[in-house]
Nucleic acid binder design. Structure first.
Lengths: 198, 198, 198, 198
DNA sequence: CAGTAACCGAGACGGTACGTCTAGTCTTGAT
DNA sequence: ATCAAGACTAGACGTACCGTCTCGGTTACTG
């Protein structure tokens, strides 16, 4: 490890970054976004809640948006684990349910906040897309393509467009503050599955 | 005439509201949101650009979000006119295209800005939903239900879920800054139509 | 009266000035200055308390200072009536007592307010001096000169300087918020009288 | 040194206060009060003239009145140095002259402004009284008492009342915008001295 | 083991925008 | 002509945050 670091030429000099501070900041950001929403989310408030100097935040997170995104990533982590069985239709249903369930909780508020921030910060937009949305889509696309390969889904299915519809529906409700329950998720899955079958 | 005014109990007293100021404010808000985005959208900036006193804005628009929404409504107006022929599938395709085309232009940036504001202002969220989103959905639902009645779409089609998917897909791309061109709209429509036919 | 007015060429046309409004404004100004002090004294507050339109105040009183002065004059009126007996020393004592007693009450707060306004409005300064201070001094000077003529006060007494001292002492305590009781007034009179006697 | 600091418990943390800013603010306040008077004296104007952020002013001076007073104190400083010889009458004359000369200049306008502010801010009233007026009076009282002890002034002289008259006369002319020249000061001193001699 | 590099806390600084308050002016309809 | 009502321009108020800066102190690795 050390060798690798040295190979990269970044022998870590000086006092190392405080892991405690980092955690405190991310958790404070999380708590504020959940409890007070975007309105109460300021560097000042996060610093105060984390018991950390404001400068420490500015040293590591150049903008509020990136702090929010980091907090979201930390909290959301890899909550989404999609099984891939040999029943593609069921897999798709499980996928929609899983996404809806995850975003129905506090992570949903975080995601919505990050999306809002993204509207005034292209960097956040790009990060959220590349580091969160795309990986999820890649995995989901895999499920769909497997279904096509297995002959369960029709061969001319436009995978990307179906995912636009599927993911978009979830986000739409998220951002309008409408409930994301399992019944809704199942109904959505069923409706979309209709056009997928071979 | 006087009788009517008295019936309504609103004998208009005092200096009447300036229509010129109202227009100037809404246009300035529009211009700033388009040219500079949410970041540059402040009451201060709108007032300066409109050549209007800041207090005049506060008198009529209690929050920035409502100003943005009003500006969006004023600018977007009734751009969406959906024909309803006796070819439901074509109608649906036209509907998706129309929505995509409308939101591909400057109105899209406005809509995204309002959605962002809605994340920190439930009033905006409610207004946008009720005054913009729902009316559109009601009309679209009509198209779909006509198709069901005509026997073109399957009778157990979940209209609301299909609209979630359709509208959600558009918004998703809008908020990620991805292009909303006609090709994409057609592909989406085709994909979703697959599950609709009887 | 009307004949005279016509002789002066100002036949009063249009709606005559409302005496009720004038009184209401002056009393409201008085009440606010007494109850809330200079800080709460705004045209807005006076209008609200008087139940009068703001424009009505601006029509008749060009500045806040003049309104305050008018209110002071109305309320203070001719409270000071100095007897002039054949005992000049006693007259002087009575004069000091009378001035102190008058300014110890609410009129004192008004006077102090007007003095404060005068520091940012020369017109008020001039009015207060000419319409309130000088008449009082003229009368007081009469008392003193009578004393000199009677041979009670020394003939080279500088009347104006003595009045500077006498009136100044009262105002000083007024503006520092120190009490203006009879004992103080008597002590002052006695101290100053010492240098007056022949 | 460190020990002393710890004893005082004031280990100075954070960026130290900028002496340059402090000076710039006080001088700007001074200049504005002299050149434009109370009317032009706003935190905004002071900040602009000082080339300092408005927030920096609010950080250190809670109200306009205290800023004015601080500016007065800084500018007026210890201009008044009263000699105390063995000729009490001459000392008193010098004292009156000195006070009049000092307040005839720009410091007089500052003092009048502070007095005006004091009418709507008891804190300013108290500060001005305790930190400026009383010290001056204590010194003046010393001169008078020395005169009494030396048998030059009459033993029953009411020192405090004489000072009321003396200082009051000066302030009265100051606040009415009347000139405070040496001739006037001498005449006042002579008039008041009459009642002091043994 | 001293030096030094990067961290952390505290807090002042120049700014921007907020939302409110007040000053004056202007424009109505009504008296 | 005056009044009540109320919209308008203008600008200061005091507050909240922003992002930068300058301190004193605190860890680490390094010569």
């Amino acid at each position: 490890m050390t060798a690798m670091a040295q190979e990269e030429g970044n022998a870590p000099r000086g006092r190392p970054r405080s892991a405690a501070s980092r955690q405190a900041v991310l958790q404070a950001a999380y708590a504020i976004l959940i409890e007070e929403g975007l309105g109460g989310f300021s560097v000042e408030a996060v610093a105060a809640r984390a018991g950390v100097a404001r400068t420490t935040i500015y040293r590591w997170w150049p903008t509020k948006g990136l702090l929010a995104f980091d907090s979201f990533r930390e909290a959301f982590g890899a909550q989404l684990v999609f099984a891939r069985t040999d029943a593609p239709a069921a897999d798709l249903r499980a996928l929609v349910r899983s996404l809806a369930r995850a975003l129905a909780g506090p992570a949903g508020r975080l995601a919505a906040s990050v999306m809002a921030q993204a509207q005034s910060d292209p960097e956040v937009q790009k990060l959220f897309l590349e580091q969160f949305s795309l990986p999820l889509r890649r995995h989901s696309a895999g499920v769909l393509k497997a279904g096509i390969a297995a002959g369960v889904f029709r061969s001319d299915l436009k995978v990307e467009r179906l995912l636009d519809a599927l993911v978009g529906a979830v986000y739409l409700r998220l951002m309008f503050g409408l409930p994301l329950d399992a019944a809704w998720a199942d109904a959505l899955a069923e409706t979309l599955l209709g056009g997928c079958m071979a």
